[in-house]
Amino acid sequence: MNGDEQLLRGRVYGCDHDDPDPGPLPARTYVTLVGGPLDGLLLDITGWTPEEVDGGVALATELSRWPGGRALYDPSADGPRAPGPGVACRFYYSGDAP
């Protein structure tokens, strides 16, 4: 694991790198990103509809194959989902896009 990957672990996607508390907040709902350049980050999905969750995400990152590109993450079709606050499910890396 390189230094950039270590810096990201346990953080919420979108938090500033110098945020003193980049971890999850109570009463928020998150997915865990698995694999790829954002492995180990949490993504805040509070207020997302089931259809939005099913659609997955394309997240901007300088760590993708194309700097400034997007890392693509999708939920597992048969993965468990927990309603309410906390970690609801996992999104798995499926590739990069420019």
Rank of each mutant, 00 (worst) to 15 (best):
Gln6Tyr: 09
Cys15Phe: 05
Asp54Tyr: 12
Pro67Gly: 04
Leu42Met: 11
Glu51Lys: 15
Gly14Cys: 13
Pro83Val: 00
Pro37Phe: 04
Ala71Leu: 07
Gly36Thr: 05
Gly35Ile: 13
Gly3Ile: 07
Ala88Val: 01
Thr61Ser: 13
Thr32Asp: 12
Pro98Leu: 06
Arg70Glu: 10
Arg9Thr: 11
His17Phe: 12
Ala77Glu: 03
Gly10Ile: 01
Leu43Ser: 06
Ser64His: 09
Pro83Thr: 01
Pro80Met: 04
Asp96Cys: 08
Pro67Asn: 04
Glu62Met: 12
Met1His: 07
Pro80Ile: 10
Thr49Met: 10
Ser76Thr: 09
Gly79Cys: 02
Asp78His: 01
Pro50Tyr: 12
Leu33Asn: 12
Thr61His: 04
Pro20Glu: 05
Thr32Gly: 13
Pro37Tyr: 08
Leu72Cys: 07
Asp44Met: 02
Gly3Ser: 06
Ala27Arg: 00
Gly69Arg: 14
Thr32Val: 15
Asp19Cys: 12
Pro24Asp: 15
Pro80Cys: 09
Ala77Pro: 01
Pro24Glu: 15
Arg9Pro: 00
Glu62Asp: 11
Leu7Gln: 07
Cys15Glu: 13
Gly40Pro: 10
Leu7Ile: 05
Leu43Trp: 04
Leu25Asn: 00
Pro67Val: 04
Leu7Lys: 15
Ser94Ile: 11
Gly23Ser: 10
Val87Leu: 01
Gly36Tyr: 02
Pro50Asp: 15
Pro80Val: 10
Thr61Gln: 06
Asn2Gly: 12
Tyr73Ala: 08
Gly84Met: 03
Tyr92Arg: 09
Gly86Arg: 06
Thr49Phe: 08
Arg11Tyr: 01
Leu43Lys: 03
Ser64Phe: 06
Asp44Gly: 03
Gly79Thr: 02
Pro22Ser: 12
Leu43Thr: 02
Ala58Ile: 07
Pro24Lys: 13
Pro20Val: 04
Asn2Ala: 01
Gly95Pro: 05
Asp44Gln: 06
Tyr13Ala: 05
Ala88Lys: 02
Leu43Asn: 09
Cys15Ala: 10
Ile45Gln: 14
Leu63Arg: 11
Leu59Glu: 13
Glu62Pro: 11
Gly68Glu: 11
Val34Lys: 06
Gly56Asn: 05
Asp21Ser: 13
Pro26Ile: 00
Gly47Cys: 08
Ser64Ile: 08
Asp78Ala: 07
Val57Gln: 15
Leu25Met: 11
Leu72Trp: 10
Cys89Tyr: 02
Pro37Asn: 10
Pro83Cys: 08
Arg90Gly: 10
Gly84Val: 00
Asp74Ile: 00
Arg9Glu: 04
Asp96Val: 08
Phe91Thr: 05
Val57Trp: 14
Ala58Lys: 10
Tyr93Val: 02
Gly86Met: 02
Trp66Arg: 14
Leu41Ala: 05
Ser76Leu: 11
Gly86Glu: 00
Asp19Thr: 12
Thr49Leu: 14
Gly35Ala: 13
Asp78Leu: 05
Asp54Phe: 09
Arg90Trp: 04
Val87Lys: 02
Gly47Val: 03
Thr49Trp: 11
Ala77Phe: 04
